[in-house]
């Protein structure tokens, strides 16, 4: 049996155990294929995301970044593929996952308050009918406080700025007290202060040994924010530590002609391997 850690396996691009039952990583995906129409959105993708690390999913528009997350969570149906969460099937380990969808995917006119949205993160604990207690509310308030939104608890969510809405979404994920955090473009359209606040919270989660996975757009911040990177363009291009995988060659392979060489040169990249 292969005794190397998932990191070593993942970094050793291409040599990945096909038997998903042998992987105890927070999230492992094998052979995932999703199609919205004739053409596959992602094709036979393998991915392994590690605990205590922040991983960026990087790729051009339409490369299937969000699709990979959604398919792994069962939010959208996949044509084929296996998912393992901490070595278990998704259904068994769902409670250990917190998912933050794209902010633009919901209607912020919905009649609800900030604290109400955070309490939605408690659903797996409270179920259908059990009463929400003062302890639940205190927990939700503490989660709001961690993203600096405690003062906004009773605001209607439509009255928030884009950055504040994103922080509320992150706060709802914190309320779930999960071990694996999957965030779909958490930095899209947010102000610098919010970006800082989100990164601080995510870094805190990482320090606690949680796994954090973000669909990410800004190539310039990859090296600063993330430990690992997963490059995708319908197929998996590469995955592993930023220092090893975030190379001009891999970026060219991911973006093709869509990324000018001059642009790549400005990035804080590892020298060509």
């Amino acid at each position: 049996m292969d005794m190397r850690t998932p990191l070593a396996l993942a970094a050793n691009n291409g040599h990945i155990p096909r038997d998903i039952a042998k992987i105890d990583a927070p999230l492992a995906v094998r052979g995932m294929t999703v199609s919205y129409g004739e053409k596959p959105a992602i094709f036979s993708v393998d991915a392994t995301f590690e605990a205590g690390k922040m991983t960026a999913i990087i790729g051009p528009n339409g490369a299937g970044k969000s699709t990979l997350l959604k398919a792994a969570l069962g939010v959208i149906p996949s044509l084929s593929g296996e998912v393992s969460v901490f070595g278990n099937p998704l259904g068994v380990a769902r409670d250990r996952i917190a998912y933050v969808p794209q902010r633009a995917s919901v209607d912020w006119d919905f009649p609800t308050t900030v604290i109400d949205v955070v309490m939605m993160g408690l659903y797996r604990k409270t179920g259908l009918l059990s009463r929400l207690t003062g302890a639940h509310r205190a927990h939700a308030m503490a989660c709001l406080d961690r993203v600096g939104m405690a003062d906004f608890a009773d605001r209607q969510i439509g009255q928030l700025s884009g950055g504040q809405q994103q922080r509320v979404f992150l706060s709802r994920a914190l309320a779930q007290e999960a071990d694996l955090y999957l965030l779909d473009e958490p930095f899209a359209g947010v102000d610098a202060a919010t970006e800082r606040a989100i990164i601080d919270v995510l870094a805190g989660l990482k320090a606690d040994g949680k796994a954090v996975v973000c669909v990410h757009h800004d190539l310039a911040t990859v090296s600063r924010y993330f430990d690992n990177v997963f490059l995708i363009n319908v197929r998996r291009i590469a995955e592993g530590p930023v220092t090893a995988v975030f190379t001009p060659e891999n970026l060219h392979a991911t973006y093709g002609g869509r990324l000018a060489t001059s642009h790549i040169d400005q990035l804080d990249l590892v020298a060509g391997a």
Binding site: Y99, P101, S105, T112, M120, Y123, R172
Partner: peptide, 22 residues
């Protein structure tokens, strides 16, 4: 009354509701 929470969550944020397993 019984399905208040699932109704509310899935009406507000469908993909979050799905990720919860609803």
């Amino acid at each position: 009354v019984i399905f208040w929470r699932p109704l509310k969550i899935s009406t507000f944020d469908e993909s979050f509701a799905q990720a919860l397993g609803l």
